[in-house]
């Protein structure tokens, strides 16, 4: 009797193991959270210094069109970030919009039209596209896309359009593979129900499959936009890096990321120039946060509809 009593009261080996496992997971989780929070605080602290210690007004920063932190006018550095914000958004939206039809088309080939060829050929191709380092994309963009644009549209070739083309190729695999997931998650019996009602394959795809997959496809779009918005190197290589309001798609421009990568090595920590870059980083961070929230929102609404 006492033996059973004792074994019940004392934690067993397995329950100790369980507790240890729980502890390890908890430590890993909390340290990751800590790092993320620390990064947030650090960037916010640095990014806000522009406004607190350098006394730049937030409105001037967001709406100003001249970016020249070395020059002071009326005691205020010229740090208008609008050209970069515009550049970033333009490239992101154009690249994703361009990629979307290709992504949906490719994804449909892989799921509904020729699933065999899709898994045999397209899947590896997509995975390969993801694996190519961004500097290689940038390099190809620099040697192929930029001269091409120069010949066709005139100008130097550098600019938003070149960035769009390069980013298009870079976000395509992300958007496509997520669209494929969305289409695959549409129950097969929707397709058979539609076909059994005398719908053609195209009608089935258009009226049932795509509609049922819409939340997933929207998520794919936002993921693609997040990737495009944050891409630095490849864009920086082809965008021209002129911190000017883009007057046309083929005029040299800049993005938040490209200004950051070109500028961050040339400034000293704590100076106005450096603080201004941190403010750009803060905008980037806030934007990716927004993208994440949008994704969560879409996912939630998608669940409700099901």
């Amino acid at each position: 009797m006492d033996k059973i009593r004792e074994s019940l009261l004392k934690p067993s080996r397995t329950s100790k193991l369980e507790r240890r496992g729980k502890l390890i997971s908890l430590v890993s989780l909390s340290s990751i959270c800590l790092v993320v929070i620390a990064i947030f605080i650090f960037i916010a602290f640095r990014g806000l210094a522009t406004f607190t210690s350098d006394h730049v007004s937030l409105v001037d920063f967001v709406t100003g069109t001249v970016w020249n932190p070395d020059v002071e006018v009326n005691g205020q550095p010229l740090v208008g970030a609008l050209p970069m914000i515009t550049g970033s958004f333009l490239i992101t939206i154009l690249a994703t919009a361009l990629a979307l039809p290709f992504a949906i088309g490719t994804a449909l080939m892989m799921t509904d039209i020729t699933p065999k060829m899709g898994t045999k050929i397209l899947q590896p191709v997509l995975e390969l596209l993801v694996g190519i380092p961004s500097v290689v994309y940038g390099f190809v963009g620099l040697t192929v896309v930029v001269p091409f644009i120069r010949d066709v549209f005139g100008g130097s070739g550098f600019g938003i359009l070149a960035g769009t083309f390069v980013l298009f190729v870079m976000v395509l695999p992300t958007v496509t593979s997520m669209t494929v997931d969305a289409l695959r998650s549409v129950p097969k019996n929707y397709r058979s129900a539609s076909l059994a009602l005398g719908a053609t394959r195209w009608q089935t795809i258009y009226k049932v499959v795509l509609r049922a997959a819409t939340p997933g496809i929207l998520t794919a779009i936002v993921f693609g936009m997040a990737r495009a918005f944050g891409e630095a190197l490849a864009v920086q290589m082809v965008v021209g890096n002129a911190a000017l309001m883009p007057s046309s798609l083929v005029a040299p421009a800049s993005t938040l990321t490209s200004v950051l990568t070109t500028g961050i090595g040339n400034t000293v920590l704590g100076t106005v120039q450096n603080d201004a870059l941190w403010s750009l980083a803060l905008i980037l961070l806030l934007m990716s946060l927004t993208f994440n929230l949008v994704i969560h929102f879409i996912a939630k609404r998608g669940e409700l509809k099901q």
Partner: peptide, 19 residues
């Protein structure tokens, strides 16, 4: 397509479209 309009089908699992 015409055949399936003439010969309709109801499946084992209720499968209404999400509409």
């Amino acid at each position: 397509v015409e055949l399936r309009k003439q010969i309709g089908m109801v499946f084992q699992q209720p499968n209404p479209f999400p509409m």
